[in-house]
């Protein structure tokens, strides 16, 4: 299980980093999205990976070892919301840049 998550995070991060280094603003935004998915998975896995265990307290269960850690799950929700909002904001800037320069190069012009 850990190895699957680790490989998934690795692939997402690698693709994300490759994409944000590309010269097209669309590639950059996709790269940022992939990177934020990778980070979200990473935060999630930092609480320890447990299969089939609830994050919420059940009054009849007093053994705390059966629960999954709820804190990373709360963190990841916040991170998703914030990442979503900032990506949307970046998209607006991207469109404005497209409108102003007529191209989608991140520097506003091609290197010739």
């Amino acid at each position: 299980m850990e190895i699957v998550i680790a490989i998934a995070i690795g692939i997402l991060t690698a693709s994300g980093i490759w994409l944000i280094l590309r010269p097209r603003s669309f590639q950059v935004i996709i790269g940022l999205s992939l990177l934020s998915y990778a980070i979200n998975l990473f935060i999630f896995s930092m609480g320890g990976i447990k299969v089939g265990s609830p994050p919420l307290l059940d009054p009849s269960q007093t053994d705390l070892t059966i629960y999954a850690d709820p804190v990373p799950q709360a963190l990841v929700l916040t991170a998703i919301v914030i990442g979503f909002a900032t990506t949307a904001l970046f998209l607006v800037v991207l469109l404005a840049s497209r409108g102003l320069t007529g191209g989608d190069h991140v520097d506003g012009r091609e290197d010739r």
């Binding site: 944000i20 603003s25 950059v28 940022l32 990177l35 934020s36 980070i39 990473f42 935060i43 930092m46 609480g47 804190v71 990373p72 963190l75 991170a79 914030i82 900032t86 990506t87 904001l89 970046f90 800037v93 991207l94 404005a96 840049s97 102003l100 320069t101 991140v106 520097d107 506003g108």
Partner: peptide
Amino acid sequence: KARVKAGMHYIAVNLVASLVLLIGASLVYA
């Protein structure tokens, strides 16, 4: 034009920095 270009770089760099901050926070928690 100049503001949008500089703004785009600024936003991209700082978005990545925020992601790094998240990595740091979750590692500290772990």
